[in-house]
Every structure is written in C-alpha cells, then in structure tokens.
C-alpha cells in the first residue's frame, strides 16, 4: 500500500480540571489512505470530536495536545508553528463542522464567506463563476450568491459548508457529524451530496458520526472509539459481518431493525471517571465478556488483514452474541 495521506500516532488530547486531566482522547493511532473515507464512530463523549480538534490543532484551553504525532502528506503537523499551520489549514485540511446552523457569519454574505478563505490562501478572490461552480457542485441555486445565512434553510447552510470545504481542493476533509443536525430526509440528501462531491474530487475524508447505518453506506473503513480510545478498526464489510470487539458488536446490534423488535443493548453511558480510566481494557466495566485477562493492557492487534482490535478474547468470542 502506498504512503497514507494522514497518519495519526499516539495522539493525546487532555482537558485539565482541578481533579486531574480528563483523558478525552488518549493515545489513538490510525492511518487515512489516499482517496479513502474513514468513519470514526462512538457514543457521545467518546472523544471523536476531540480527536479531530487535535488533528486540526483547534484544542482550546483548558484542553491541550498532550502528545502524539500527526503527519499530513509527510509533514509533521504538530511541530509546525502556528502561522505555518494556519497556512496549511483549509488548503490541506478542511472541516465540515458539526453545527452548520451556526457556522456561518450572520453579518457576511454567503459568497463573501467562501471568497475570504480562497483569498487568504491563494492571494486572489475567486470570481463569481468559480463560486457559482461550487454552488452547483453541491446543488445550491445561484440566487443565494447575494444572500445572508439567515435567509437559508439548515440543509442549504450545510451544503454551503460542503461547498466551502471543497473550495480549495483540500487533501483531507474532516466531516464532523455533518448531517446529524438535519431531519432524516434532508440528512440523506446532504449525505448523498457529500458522497458525490467526495467521489468527484477524490478527496480523502474522515467522517465522524454515530449513525451506523449512514456509515455503512458512506465509508470504506470504520474506527470505533470508546472513552477516548480506538478499540477497533476494520473495513466496513468486516466490521458489520465480524466485529471483533464486544463494544463494536453492541454498537452494530443496536442499529434498529425494520423486521425484528430487539431490546436496546446500550443502556448506560460511559461508566468510569474519564480522569481515572480502569487499568487494562477501557471497556471492562461494561463488557459482558469480562474476565481476569482484561485488566492487562490491551494493545491494538491484527485479528485478520485490515482488521485490528484491542481485545484479547476477540478470537474466542467470534460469532458470539453480546
């Protein structure tokens, strides 16, 4: 395989509190291949957004990047100065934000907000035709060129954010729950738009979300996060057919089925204090298959080619239901 476009090694993002650091993202590693879409899933509070804010270097106080390396296109992103990193933003690493509803400046026209990022990074403002081309790519009508954000619907604002993200043909796009604030119909249409734009430009993408159904359609590989750690990474087909980690199994079995009524598997949230995670497996307090070996460190190991998992019982639990 060729060199990954984005490589994250041992990334740690901690939030300082008076009672010790909250290990929001603790020692995560993954690679993003060129042209690939990687899904990052996990329940609320599992550290997905914190992980991306670490990659984007947008951790603000009291948070800090406590360690790790992020390499984009062979360049160490953590070592760059603020000003050098600012220049890499958007031109190499763009973001489709979580709350598109409020992600546009209310006192600037839509077109001006696309123009300013292009002008900052290329030195020249885009002409009207280029902005309209971007609008067309995401299915926005020409008439919004002169409009302000409050004149647009939520779905349209989300499309504006997608158009903005691709304006500079970035190397990597991070889509942070880009569709979760929308109703299901608009969600589907926006997700399709996102997939279409991604395929047309061949951009690599990290997609964050907790909608396993949407992930199944959109991504090539899935990384499952729990309480700040990645517990499993697998190609999407393997993840759904043969999940290796008990937590992945619970997540997948929780996708509601249309034909069969099943009890919810996830009944509680993360149970331990994130300042003081248990020794060994991060999931041991909630895992139905916990045994003595779970208190030993659980490094990510290869279960089968392309599928890595942080569980010492993965093989023996293969096929078992949770």
């Amino acid at each position: 395989m060729s060199e990954p476009v984005l490589s994250v090694r041992g990334l740690k993002v901690y939030y300082a509190t008076p009672d010790g650091d909250v290990l929001a993202t603790d020692d995560i590693s993954f690679d993003l291949e060129r042209g690939e879409t990687l899904g990052l899933v996990g329940e609320s509070g599992s550290g997905k957004t914190t992980a991306t804010s670490g990659i984007l270097r947008m951790v603000s106080s009291p948070g800090r990047i406590a360690g790790g390396r992020v390499t984009l296109d062979g360049e160490d992103m953590i070592a760059l100065s603020d000003e050098e990193f600012r220049k890499r933003r958007w031109s190499k690493l763009a973001l489709i934000p979580q709350g598109a509803m409020n992600s546009l400046n209310p006192t600037m026209k839509i077109s001006a907000q696309i123009a300013d990022v292009v002008r900052t990074h290329t030195g020249a403002a885009p002409d009207r035709a280029r902005v309209l081309e971007l609008f067309q790519m995401v299915g926005l009508p020409e008439r919004i060129y002169e409009m302000y954000p409050h004149e647009l619907s939520g779905g349209m604002k989300q499309r504006v954010c997608i158009a903005m993200a691709v304006a500079l043909n970035p190397t990597v796009i991070i889509a942070d729950e880009a569709t979760s604030a929308l109703d299901v119909v608009v969600q589907r249409v926006v997700a399709q738009t996102l997939a279409k734009v991604r395929d047309a430009l061949g951009v690599s993408m990290i997609m964050i979300g907790h909608d396993m159904g949407l992930m199944a359609q959109m991504v090539d590989r899935i990384a499952v996060m729990y309480a700040g750690k990645i517990v499993e990474i697998a190609p999407v087909a393997d993840m759904f057919a043969r999940p290796g980690h008990p937590y992945s199994k619970i997540l997948i079995e929780s996708v509601p089925s249309l034909t069969e009524r099943r009890p919810m598997k996830i009944t509680e949230g993360i149970t331990h204090d994130p300042r003081n995670p248990p020794e060994g497996c991060i999931f041991q307090l909630r895992c139905p298959h916990v045994n003595d070996g779970c208190t030993k460190p659980q490094p990510m190991r290869e279960l089968r080619p392309g599928q890595t998992v942080a569980c010492h019982r993965a093989e023996e639990l293969e096929g078992a239901h949770v």
Binding site: R86, K87, R89, W90, Q98, S103, L104, D116, T120
Partner: peptide, 15 residues
C-alpha cells in the same frame, strides 16, 4: 461556531 470555523479556515487572526 462561525468563529471556530473561521479559525479552521485558516483566516488571519486579525481578519
């Protein structure tokens, strides 16, 4: 959110 996105866009701090 729009200020956070502006930062992610790599706009100049003064702008």
């Amino acid at each position: 959110d729009y200020v956070k996105l502006a930062e992610a866009k790599g706009l100049k701090p003064r702008y």
